[in-house]
Structure formats: C-alpha cells, structure tokens
Design a protein around this nucleic acid. Structure first.
Lengths: 98, 98
DNA sequence: CTTACATTAGACAATTATTGACAAGTCAAT
DNA sequence: ATTGACTTGTCAATAATTGTCTAATGTAAG
C-alpha cells in the first residue's frame, strides 16, 4: 500500500473530504488529490497533521512515507530486489559501526 | 559499501588519480572527491563511463548507485529496517500486479 | 437534464534542492 | 619550501519539486 493510497483509505473511513485535509495542511484540494494519487509528495511536516486528522499512528505514516520514496527510486529499475538487498546489507553494516 | 567508497577502491586498484576520473566525467577534481566521499551524487550518465575506466560492471555500479540513495533516505530515520521491509512488501505487491 | 459539489488534469509560478566551479586549504613526500 | 593529490567552504547556475489557478470530468440528487 502506497502512502497516498493509505491516506485516501483512512480519509474515506473517517468520512472526510479532500478539502478538509487540504485546508488543514494549508494546500489546495488539487494538491491533496495529487498526494493521494502519489503524483506529488506530501511534506514531512504534514505527517503529524494527517495522523491526527485520520486517527492514525505517526510512526506508521512516517514508515510508509519513506518506503514510498524507496518505491519511487526502484520503480524504473531493472532489478529492484537486488538493489534493496544491497541497501539492506549496507544498513546492517551501519549498525555494526555505530 | 557505499557507491563512492567503491569507486575510490576501484580507482586505487587501477592506480588512477581523481583528476583522471574527473576529466573523463568532465567535472573538476573537487567534485570527484565529493562523489567518492558520498558528499555529492554522481550523475546517472557517469556510471557507464566510470565502469569502463574502472573495469567494473555497469550493472554492479548501478545497483550500488541506487542502493546508495536508499541509504541516504534511511540514514536519518528511526527504524530503517521497518521501512525497508515495508518497501519490500510493496515491491513484491507490484510484481503481482504486472 | 441541470445543478451542486467532489475530484482530477494541465499549465505555469514559486520555492527548494542539487550540481558544479572556483579559490583556498591540508597533508605527505621530497 | 615546493610540488602534487586531495579536501573544504562558499556561491552561482541549474534542475527538480511543490503549489496555485483554471478548466475539465465525474457523480449523485432533485
């Protein structure tokens, strides 16, 4: 589930309209629509606001938010699994160092 | 191993100087230095040139290149493993759809 | 059908991030 | 002290992203 998709799902569950979220984030509804369709990215500082409005966990949204950007990177790549694996290896390495 | 680190290693193995690579990529040596220290990103189109100069596999370098950007994303995050896992789940999902 | 409201599309402007050059600096070897 | 390799900091140019506005499309109710 992409970040935007998830936001939309929560929004509908909460019976809110795009303009409700948009006004809270102080952007116009067109922009909000784009965010939900992953055509644009929300700003990081939007996440806590969204979490509150949608009664969702900030951590969960943040996780999805970054995961989404990873997807974006991998999307047009030949072998996304191999790349992810390389990244994972490096993350593990980092842990060791710190 | 980060992308830049790897480039540096290969460069030293091949007994080349920063300015050799730099001139080939048509950037200055300061820039090349930054690339090797992951302070700046190489351009995508630099990769084939680097692969040739360093007698390395284009695919390998490309993998590392994107993995590096993932690292970058995760680097200041609370729980990188969870995020990677979420991304992986979504990648698998994508495969199903296509 | 037509009105009213929600959402989406596209073009452009504003903002922010990235790339790269340049000049000055460190460091090691001689 | 000089030279050569590399690094650092600052700033301008460029590129990418975010956002707005207007018009279009969809959709449900009367």
């Amino acid at each position: 589930m992409r970040f935007g998709e998830h936001i939309r799902q929560l929004r509908e569950q909460n019976k809110l309209l795009l303009r409700h979220l948009a006004s809270e984030l102080d952007i116009d509804t067109a922009m909000m629509s784009k965010i939900e369709r992953s055509e644009r990215k929300a700003k990081r500082e939007h996440i806590p606001q969204l979490a509150k409005l949608l009664r969702a966990s900030v951590t969960e949204l943040q996780t999805l938010y970054i995961a989404d950007q990873i997807i974006e990177l991998l999307d047009d790549e030949e072998n996304p699994r191999a790349i992810l694996y390389a990244a994972e290896k490096e993350i593990n390495q980092m842990k060791k160092d710190s």
